[in-house]
Structure formats: structure tokens, C-alpha cells
Computed example of a mutant assay.
Amino acid sequence: MNAESNEREEVVDPAATVPVTGGVTGDERELGSRAPQIIKRHRTLHLSWQVGVFAIGLAVVAAGIVMLPLPGPGWLVIFGGMAIWATEFVWAQLVLRWTKRKVTEAAQKALDPKVRRRNMILTTIGLVIVAVLVGIYVWEFGLAMPWNIEQ
């Protein structure tokens, strides 16, 4: 009887529904090293590869940190360095996934009509305040720069 009922019911094995990519959904890739197989086979070669990836990623992140106060795309370069690290280190892959999720959530929130309307109103109020202050300054001192004004 039991064998008949198993034949009649199609039992789906949960493991059979997992994609070949290791259960990765959407655009997320499998965690772990993306080094070529020939490098992964040899422990010392793989360790040297990891040290090289870490050094290059560290240089790029350091350049991004320097660009934060200076002219340049600081955050973009920092995330580029994190992406370099993510080719080899799971912790960097997890940080990038978390960052991507938070940026997507913030973008969706910013597109909410109520939030967007509030932001536009606050921006308009801020611009009006700045325009009034600049108008008062120009009325009082003319187009002279602040360090050229004699009291």
C-alpha cells in the first residue's frame, strides 16, 4: 500500500529544487574565492594570490579614503577596492551584499511619493534661506569677498 501511494503522489525532494549554482538566488553569486582552479589547487600559490588581492584592494581603498576630503570619487573608489577584495574574501562579499541591499532600500524609499515631496519641500526652503542670506550680504557689502571687507 505504501509503495502504491508513493507511486501515485509525486514527492519532490527539496534538494532537487536547488539550482546548480549552489542555491544562489537572483544575481547573488556563490560565496568564496574566485581564483582560477590552477591557483586554488596549490595552497602556497593560493595564499600568495590572496595576499596580492588584499594588497591591491588595500591600495585602492586607501586611495579612496584619501579622496574623501580631496577632489575625486572617494566612495566609488572605496567600493571598487571592496569589490577587489570580494573576488577573494567572503567577508568582503557579505559587506558588498549588505551595502547593495541598503542602497536599494534607500533608493526605493527615496522614490516614495511622500518622502520625495518632503525632500523637495525641504530643499526649496533651504534654497530660499540661502538666497535670502546671499541677498542680505550683497545688499550690505556689495559683491566684495568677505576677506576684502574693511570694517
Score class of each variant (00 low, 15 high):
Gly26Trp: 09
Gly32Ile: 06
Val132Ser: 05
Ile125Leu: 15
Arg117Pro: 00
Arg29Asp: 06
Val12His: 02
Pro73Cys: 00
Thr123Trp: 10
Pro113Asn: 07
Lys100Phe: 11
Trp147Gln: 12
Gly80Arg: 02
Ala15Asn: 11
Lys40Ser: 05
Leu122Asn: 13
Lys102Trp: 05
Thr25Pro: 00
Trp139Thr: 10
Arg43His: 09
Trp139His: 13
Ala16Asp: 15
Gly72Leu: 01
Leu127Arg: 04
Thr17Met: 15
Ala83Glu: 00
Leu143Tyr: 14
Asn119Ile: 03
Pro146Thr: 13
Ala110Ile: 06
Glu140Tyr: 05
Leu68Trp: 01
Thr104Ile: 10
Val11Leu: 08
Ala107Gln: 13
Leu96Asp: 01
Ala83Asn: 04
Ser33Met: 06
Val138Thr: 11
Gln37His: 07
Arg8Val: 09
Leu47Asn: 11
Leu111Thr: 14
Ala15Trp: 07
Ile84Gln: 04
Ser33Val: 07
Phe79Gly: 05
Val66Ser: 01
Phe89Gly: 04
Thr25Arg: 12
Val53Met: 10
Ile84Trp: 07
Leu133Ser: 10
Ala59Pro: 01
Gly126Glu: 05
Arg29Tyr: 05
Lys102Pro: 01
Arg41Lys: 14
Val115Gln: 15
Val115Cys: 08
Leu70Trp: 12
Gln50Gly: 09
Leu58Asp: 04
Leu70Met: 10
Thr87Glu: 06
Trp139Arg: 13
Leu47Gln: 11
Leu76Ala: 07
Val61Ile: 15
Ile129Met: 14
Glu105Asn: 08
Arg101Gly: 10
Pro19Thr: 07
Met82Phe: 15
Val18Gln: 14
Val53Leu: 05
Ala131Ser: 14
Ala86Trp: 02
Leu127Phe: 14
Leu31Val: 04
Thr124Tyr: 09
Val138Trp: 09
Val103Met: 11
Ala106Lys: 13
Trp91Arg: 03
Ala63Arg: 12
Trp91Val: 04
Gln37Cys: 00
Pro19Met: 06
Arg97Trp: 04
Ile38His: 12
Arg34Ile: 01
Leu133Trp: 06
Tyr137Asn: 07
Ile78Pro: 03
Ala35Asp: 07
Lys109Val: 09
Val18Trp: 09
Arg116Ile: 05
Arg8Ser: 02
Gln93Lys: 01
Ala86Cys: 04
Ala86Phe: 03
Leu31Gln: 05
Lys102Ala: 11
Ser48Gln: 04
Ala63Asp: 06
Met120Lys: 12
Trp49Glu: 05
Asp112Lys: 13
Leu70Tyr: 13
Val134Ala: 15
Glu28Ala: 14
Asp112Tyr: 08
Thr99Glu: 02
Thr124Ser: 14
Gly81Tyr: 12
Lys102Gly: 03
Gly80Trp: 09
Trp147His: 13
Ala83Thr: 08
Val11Cys: 05
Val61Asp: 01
Arg97Val: 01
Trp49Thr: 03
Ile39Thr: 14
Pro19Ser: 14
Gln50Thr: 02
Phe79Val: 05
Val66Phe: 13
Gly26Pro: 02
Lys109Cys: 05
Thr124Glu: 08
Leu96Val: 07
Glu140Pro: 00
Thr44Ser: 11
Lys100Ala: 15
Gly22Glu: 10
Lys40Gln: 14
Gly64Glu: 06
Ala107Lys: 15
Val103Ser: 08
Leu111Trp: 08
Val61Gly: 01
Gln50His: 02
Lys102Gln: 14
Gln50Val: 00
Leu94Asn: 02
Gly32Arg: 01
Val95Cys: 05
Val128Glu: 07
Met67Asp: 07
Gln50Leu: 09
Ala83Arg: 01
Ser33Tyr: 04
Ile129Gln: 07
Phe54Gln: 01
Arg8Trp: 03
Ala62Trp: 06
Ala92Leu: 02
